[in-house]
Amino acid sequence: MTGEQTSSQDADPRAVWAAALEALEADVVETERALAVQAQTDVLPEIRPTWQAPAVPLPAELAPRAAALLARHQDMTARVERAMLAIRRQQASSTRLHARLDLGTAPRPVYVDKAV
């Protein structure tokens, strides 16, 4: 192991947890931004690997930040679930409307302006 490489056991727990909380907070901020512009269908949050807590204990001084971030994350999870439910309802409504109109594969009527 070189001087630059350290195991998680050798690393400063505060620095390890600070970096982990920053990564988690970046995910929450990105999801909040995506929900704020959900009308724009081309805006999707970046998919990252599942977050894992560091193997070292959480330092006491970072506990309030971690608790606040947990609350934000739980709120964001609930907001995403509500948005997904709204999308499913809208899709079901659209499907029912399409079935009622029975558009099938018939071509759409076209207006032709012709002098008589």
Rank of each mutant, 00 (worst) to 15 (best):
M1P: 08
T2F: 11
G3D: 14
G3N: 14
Q5W: 13
Q5R: 15
T6H: 15
S8W: 11
S8M: 12
Q9E: 13
Q9A: 15
Q9R: 13
D10H: 09
D10R: 06
A11I: 05
A11L: 11
D12C: 04
D12I: 06
P13Y: 01
P13I: 03
R14C: 05
R14Q: 09
W17A: 00
W17D: 00
A19W: 04
A19I: 06
A19Y: 05
A20G: 11
L21N: 00
L21F: 01
L21E: 00
E22I: 05
E22G: 10
A23I: 04
E25S: 08
A26S: 08
A26W: 01
D27V: 05
D27N: 09
V28P: 00
V29G: 05
E30S: 02
T31L: 07
T31N: 09
A36N: 12
Q38D: 12
A39T: 15
A39W: 15
T41S: 14
T41G: 13
D42C: 06
V43D: 08
P45F: 01
E46G: 07
I47E: 13
R48Y: 04
R48W: 03
T50R: 11
T50A: 15
W51I: 09
Q52C: 07
A53K: 08
A53Y: 05
V56C: 02
L58E: 01
L58D: 00
P59I: 02
A60T: 12
A60N: 11
E61H: 02
E61W: 01
L62V: 04
L62C: 04
A63I: 02
A66Q: 06
A66G: 03
L69G: 00
L70G: 10
A71E: 01
H73K: 12
Q74A: 12
Q74D: 10
D75N: 13
M76Y: 04
M76V: 13
A78M: 10
R79E: 02
R79K: 09
V80T: 09
E81W: 04
E81I: 05
E81Q: 14
M84Y: 12
L85C: 05
L85G: 06
A86P: 03
I87Q: 14
I87N: 11
R88Y: 12
Q90R: 15
Q91V: 08
Q91G: 12
Q91M: 12
A92K: 08
S94E: 15
R96I: 08
L97W: 10
L97P: 04
L97H: 12
A99K: 05
A99W: 04
L101W: 08
D102W: 01
G104T: 00
T105H: 07
T105M: 04
T105I: 07
A106T: 02
P107C: 06
P107F: 03
P107T: 07
R108N: 10
V112M: 10
D113M: 06
A115S: 12
V116K: 12
V116D: 14
